[in-house]
C-alpha cells in the first residue's frame, strides 16, 4: 500500500492551491491570464501570507483578474482609473498589508494617469502591475494611450498619437522599482515579480500582455509576435530569496547582486550591454534610445532600495491605524477641557 503523496508546501506550510483564485472568465490566451498564473506562483514560492495581502484594481479585463488569483486575500475592485486612491487609503489604514494593484493601460495611462502619477510621486509602498495591451479590451478594442504611433487597430486604422511610456513616467517621478516584462516570458516575469515582493517602496511593473481578441493581429505593436521579435532584455535576471542560500552556483558572465530590503538578492547577469539599474539617469536614456531603435526593453530598469516610502514619511504608529483601541484615538477629557479653555 503506497502512502498518499504529501503535497508540496512553501515555507508557511501552504500549498500552491492556497494562492489560487476563482476560475478566469477572460479570453483563452489573454496575456492577463499568464500574469495571474505568475502571481500565484511567485506569492506561493516567496511564502507570502495571502491573508495579509490586499488586492486592488480599477476597471477593465485586467482589473477583473484579481478575482482569479489569491483567493485568500481581500480584494477591492474599484472605479475606472482610481485604484491608486483606494489602495493608498487602505494601506494607510493598515500599514501591515501587502498591497498588490493590478490595472490596465487604459485604467492607468488614460483615465487614471493623474492618480498613477501621484501614487508614483508618493512612492506608496505597493506592487503596481500594469497589464499593457495597447487597447481597451473590455470596451472592445479602442486604442489606449500606450498604443504606439502607427500601430493599427483590427479595422486597419492607424494610431496617430505618441504613446505614454508608463515606465518612463514612473522612473522620472519617483517609483523606486521600475520594470518592464512580457506576459509570455515566464522566467523573467517571475523574477521581476519576486523582486517587487521583496521591495519596500512602490514597484511599477509594465507587463506587455497581448489582447488576443482585439490587438494580436499583424500591424499591432503589442501582439505576441511583434513583442517576440522586438523584445530586448536588458540582462538576465535571477532572484534569490532571503530564506535561501545565496552562495548557489554562479555561472559564466558578469554578475551583479542587488540587495533588496528583506535580504533577498536580485542577481543580474550581463547580456551584451553594460546596464546599471541603480542609475536613474542612465535608465531614462536607455528607454529613450530604445524608443528610437524601436526596441522593447525588458528587465529591471531601476531599483532604489533606500528612498523612504510615503508611509515612513508620515511617522505613523507601527500598529495598523484601523484597529487602534479607543484609548489611542479618543483624547482625554482633560484634552477637551484644554481645547475649550483656550476658546473662552
Amino acid at each position: 500500500m503506497s502512502a498518499a503523496p504529501t503535497p508540496k508546501v512553501n515555507r508557511l506550510g501552504l500549498e500552491v492551491l492556497n494562492y489560487k483564485g476563482s476560475k478566469t472568465t477572460l479570453c483563452a490566451g489573454c496575456g492577463h491570464n499568464s500574469i495571474s498564473e505568475r502571481i500565484v506562483e511567485c506569492f506561493y514560492e516567496m511564502g507570502v501570507d495571502p491573508m495579509m495581502v490586499a488586492k486592488f484594481s480599477g476597471i477593465g479585463c485586467s482589473s477583473k483578474s484579481p478575482a482569479y488569483f489569491l483567493g485568500l486575500s481581500h480584494g477591492f475592485n474599484g472605479v475606472h482609473g482610481r485604484m491608486p486612491a483606494i489602495a493608498t487609503g487602505a494601506l494607510l489604514a493598515n500599514r501591515n498589508l501587502i498591497g498588490l494593484g493590478v490595472t490596465g493601460d487604459g485604467d492607468t495611462a488614460s483615465i487614471g494617469i493623474g492618480q498613477f502619477m501621484h501614487l508614483v510621486r508618493r512612492n506608496m509602498p505597493m506592487i503596481y502591475v500594469i497589464e499593457d495591451n495597447g487597447v481597451y479590451g473590455l470596451t472592445k478594442g479602442q486604442f489606449s494611450a500606450t498604443a504606439d504611433m502607427g500601430s493599427t487597430a483590427k479595422s486597419g486604422a492607424a494610431n496617430a498619437l505618441p504613446p505614454f511610456d508608463c515606465c518612463a513616467l514612473a522612473l522620472r517621478w519617483g517609483a523606486t522599482l521600475v520594470a518592464r516584462s512580457f506576459s509570455g516570458d515566464k522566467k523573467q516575469l517571475q523574477t521581476v515579480l519576486k523582486t517587487a515582493i521583496a521591495h519596500k517602496g512602490l514597484a511599477v511593473i509594465d507587463v506587455i500582455s497581448p489582447c488576443v481578441t482585439f490587438n494580436d493581429h499583424a500591424g499591432s505593436t503589442k501582439s505576441y509576435s511583434y513583442i517576440k521579435d522586438h523584445e530586448e532584455p536588458l540582462h538576465e535576471l535571477d532572484f534569490v530569496p532571503f530564506f535561501e542560500d545565496i552562495s548557489v552556483e554562479i555561472g559564466e558572465g558578469e554578475i551583479r547582486d542587488v540587495r533588496m530590503h528583506d535580504g533577498s538578492s536580485l542577481r543580474i547577469r550581463k547580456i551584451d550591454r553594460e546596464y546599471d539599474p541603480t542609475d536613474r539617469g542612465k535608465a531614462m536614456s536607455a528607454l529613450e534610445q530604445a524608443e528610437r531603435d524601436g526596441e522593447v526593453l525588458t528587465g529591471v530598469l531601476y531599483v532604489n532600495t533606500s528612498q523612504p516610502t510615503f508611509i515612513e514619511q508620515l511617522e505613523m504608529m507601527d500598529e495598523p491605524l484601523a484597529t487602534l483601541p479607543e484609548s489611542k484615538v479618543r483624547p482625554s477629557r482633560a484634552a477637551l477641557e484644554d481645547a475649550m479653555e483656550e476658546l473662552r
Binding site: T88, H118, E315, A322, L324
Partner: peptide, 26 residues
Amino acid sequence: ATYAVVQAEDELASIGMALGAGWAGA
C-alpha cells in the same frame, strides 16, 4: 501619530482614499 492626513491630488482621490481606508477598517 495615531492618524494619517493626506492632501490628495484632487477630490476624486480624497474620497477614494477615504473609502479605501474605511474599507480597511479606519
